[in-house]
Simulated scan of single mutants.
Amino acid sequence: MFTGIIEDIGIITNLKEENSNLHITVKSSITPELKIDQSVAHNGVCLTVVDIKDTEYTVTAIKETLNKTNLGTLDLNDKVNLERAMKLGDRLDGHIVQGHVDQTGICTNIKEENGSWVFSFSYDSKLNNLTIEKGSITINGTSLTVVDSKKDSFSVAIIPYTFEHTNFNTFKKGTIINLEFDVLGKYVTKLMSIK
Rank of each mutant, 00 (worst) to 15 (best):
F2V: 10
F2M: 07
F2Q: 04
T3G: 12
G4H: 07
G4I: 10
E7R: 05
I11H: 03
I11L: 11
I12T: 07
L15R: 03
E18F: 07
E18N: 11
H23T: 09
I24Q: 01
T25H: 05
K27E: 12
S28M: 01
P32V: 05
E33A: 13
L34D: 02
K35H: 11
V40S: 03
H42L: 07
N43I: 02
V45Y: 02
C46H: 07
L47P: 13
D51G: 02
D51S: 14
D51Q: 15
I52L: 04
D54H: 03
T55M: 09
E56W: 00
E56Y: 00
Y57T: 01
T58R: 10
T60H: 05
A61E: 08
I62M: 15
I62H: 10
K68D: 11
T69R: 01
T69K: 02
L74T: 04
L74M: 07
D75T: 13
D75R: 11
D75N: 15
D75F: 09
N77I: 12
N77H: 15
V80F: 01
L82C: 01
M86K: 09
L88C: 13
L88A: 13
G89Y: 05
H95D: 08
V97P: 02
D102N: 13
D102F: 03
Q103P: 02
Q103A: 05
C107F: 05
N109K: 12
N109M: 08
I110V: 14
K111N: 14
E112Y: 08
G115N: 15
S122Y: 12
Y123G: 02
D124E: 11
D124C: 10
N128W: 02
L130K: 11
I132F: 12
G135P: 08
S136M: 11
S136V: 12
T138E: 00
I139C: 12
N140L: 05
G141L: 02
T142L: 11
